[in-house]
């Protein structure tokens, strides 16, 4: 690999793989069919722990489908068939005896449009810990809620109105509330499906900062349609096109010396 040694981020990634740390999540020849549509074709992808991996590609190429393979959210849609293997820490998540509920507690998700529950801010965060029995007492629960909101950088803005409805917040705050809601369950991986596409630039900036911070504690996979965002927040980038993995590698390399013509065309903005 020919890497610019001045890039600090790149060095981290290099170091991680150099030390032989196994990847957090691995997808091997994953195929997804929606009814008659072949949405994903033979996708194989390694997600490194404590890194941000960005999935980019033209709209409708299947990047969200890849993301949803990692917490089996594709099953929400009717007539979906998934084949291949996806593992987390070496454990096959499509195995027969896997409890999807437990899996989703380990792999959290944030959606394109903020979708807080129509309940109070407190209950929004507390819902996950409650159903998973993470808090024995009320004090524990309050502590989890505060810690999650702190981590999502929302605590100072909402600490006086925890009883208010989550839907009354601004869009950017709602999205950080959703991130806090995901964090509250203490997942290992957080999947983000274009988390900033519905937000204004300032709110987007805040979320990007937050992603950078969260990298210390979580493994993050983010789908984005903005190449600048991918370049800003991620360490690795996967380019997906027409349901296939076009190119995958360290972000810097991808944006400076794309190996494939299609990737280059997309990054140069020729199509997409």
């Amino acid at each position: 690999m020919n890497v610019d040694p001045s890039n600090a981020l790149m060095r981290d990634a290099e170091a991680a793989s150099a030390e032989g740390i196994p990847p957090k999540m691995v997808a091997r020849s994953v195929n997804v069919h929606y009814g008659a549509t072949h949405a994903l074709k033979d996708v194989s992808l390694d997600i490194q722990g404590y890194e941000v991996t960005a999935l980019i590609g033209p709209s409708g190429c299947g990047k969200s489908t890849v993301l949803r393979c990692f917490n089996r959210m594709n099953e929400m849609f009717e007539n979906t068939q998934t084949s291949g293997q996806v593992t987390i820490d070496g454990m096959d998540i499509y195995a027969r005896d896997i409890d999807v509920v437990a899996l989703r507690a380990r792999v959290g998700m944030v959606f394109q449009r903020p979708n807080p529950f129509p309940k109070s801010i407190f209950d929004n965060i507390a819902y996950g810990p409650r159903i998973h029995g993470l808090a024995e007492t009320k004090e524990d629960l309050e502590q989890i809620v505060e810690a999650s909101l702190q981590r999502a950088g929302l605590w100072d803005e909402v600490k006086d109105r925890l009883k208010q409805s989550g839907t009354a917040l601004s869009d950017g705050q709602q999205q950080r509330l959703c991130i806090a809601r995901a964090i509250a369950v203490q997942p290992e991986v957080i999947l983000m499906d274009e988390p900033c596409s519905a937000l204004d630039p300032i709110a987007t900036g805040k979320i990007e900062e937050l992603i950078e911070e969260l990298r210390t504690g979580f493994t993050i996979v983010i789908v984005t349609h903005s190449m600048q965002q991918a370049a800003r927040v991620s360490q690795r980038t996967a380019f997906i096109s027409r349901g296939e993995l076009g190119e995958y590698g360290p972000t810097v390399e991808m944006f400076t010396k794309p190996r494939h013509e299609r990737t280059k065309d997309y990054i140069m903005g020729r199509y997409g």
Partner: peptide, 17 residues
């Protein structure tokens, strides 16, 4: 809206929950 259900599923609620 379906997003509500998706949000609950994503924090690990079972479909019934």
């Amino acid at each position: 809206p379906n997003a509500l259900k998706a949000g609950a599923l994503a924090v690990g609620a079972s479909p019934v929950q």
